[in-house]
């Protein structure tokens, strides 16, 4: 009984914390974006190349921008509390719909990038650790550092030049061939071909990080007593590496990956721009430039919720991979 209560208390405490953070994000960003010069009416007028005072007054009235700021905030908060993220000024669509349109693409992109990063990063890191001090280790370490030091948008541009323009192996941009009439597996393959370059470019940066983390953690863990004990028990090297060393070494990698969720969305801004990937990062960037306040706030709220959820998930994974808990349970 007490265990359940404690758990409920723990979960609700976390929930309250999360709500406080999200509330702060809304309020602070609300004022932040309002302080930026220009407003959506002016942007729409400016891009039109023709607009008079009436045109802008009409828009400002329609958007409610002629109301006092605190009133706008109150109205907005009221809507958000009911799950309504408002209406996009520029696109004239509900923000939830815009985000729902874009979110799956970003999740696909970042999810794939993350999977690539974790798989390659852990594999390379393990290899580097196993051959620590030798040629393979040096190569992997140098390569990781090199990737880590390269601007991702630059890498993306170079990759496009090589694979799409010079070699013509992969599609240039977008996420699927328009109106191809493809279904099922063929459609998946089509999307997959579009996905390779952006996902790898986005993932590479993190491959470097995870490889370094894994390597460092493994070197640390393999000197620990329980590993020595395992070796002394005569367990095979492979078994020792995978079951004992790697499993422990993964902890810092996993917790770091949890912290990266926000970065992935942010980093996706550049990659989505370079590869014309219709994701949420680009939506956010365009919202900043267009002063589409509601869209920007909406994206920030949704991504924040995602990051918080992701962190919670990380904690669960943490518990699962932690052998100390695993062995007792």
């Amino acid at each position: 009984m007490t265990g359940v209560l404690a758990r409920v208390a723990f979960v609700s405490r976390r929930l309250v914390k999360a709500i406080v953070v999200i509330f702060a994000i809304i309020v602070l960003n609300f004022f932040l974006v309002r302080m930026t010069p220009g407003d959506p009416a002016l942007v729409i007028a400016g891009e039109a190349g023709a607009a008079d005072q009436k045109f802008m007054d009409d828009l400002r009235h329609e958007f409610g921008l002629d109301q006092p700021l605190w009133k706008q905030l109150a109205v907005y908060l009221g809507h958000v509390a009911q799950g309504d993220l408002g209406f996009s000024y520029r696109q004239r669509l509900p923000v939830t719909q815009l985000i729902a349109d874009r979110l799956p693409q970003t999740l696909l992109l970042t999810g794939t990038a993350m999977a690539i990063a974790l798989a390659l990063g852990i594999a390379f890191g393990t290899m580097a650790a196993m051959y620590a001090g030798r040629m393979a280790d040096t190569m992997i370490t140098v390569l990781a550092l090199l990737v880590f030091a390269t601007p991702s948008f630059w890498l993306g541009l170079m990759a496009i030049l090589l694979f799409s323009v010079k070699l013509d192996w992969l599609p240039l941009f977008g996420m699927a061939t328009v109106d191809s009439g493809l279904h099922g597996l063929a459609l998946a393959a089509d999307i997959g071909r579009h996905l390779i370059l952006p996902a790898v470019t986005l993932g590479l940066f993190f491959v470097a990080i995870y490889a370094r983390l894994t390597r460092a953690a493994m070197l640390e863990v393999r000197e620990l007593d329980f590993v020595r004990t395992a070796r002394a028990k005569g367990l095979g090297e492979r078994r020792v590496v995978v079951r004992h060393i790697l499993r422990n070494a993964l902890l810092p990698v996993v917790s770091y990956a949890g912290l990266q969720a926000g970065y992935l969305v942010g980093g996706a801004v550049l990659i989505e721009t370079v590869f014309a990937w219709p994701g949420i990062g680009r939506l956010a960037y365009e919202a900043v430039v267009g002063r589409d306040y509601t869209v920007l706030l909406g994206v920030l709220i949704i991504t924040s919720i995602m990051v918080i959820a992701f962190n919670a998930l990380t904690d669960i994974v943490y518990v699962l991979v932690d052998p100390r808990i695993g062995s007792t349970g």
Partner: peptide, 13 residues
């Protein structure tokens, strides 16, 4: 068909 392509290097390619 109008493709949305935000990057100019992509457009020229």
């Amino acid at each position: 068909i109008y493709d949305v392509v935000p990057d100019s290097a992509q457009r020229v390619a």
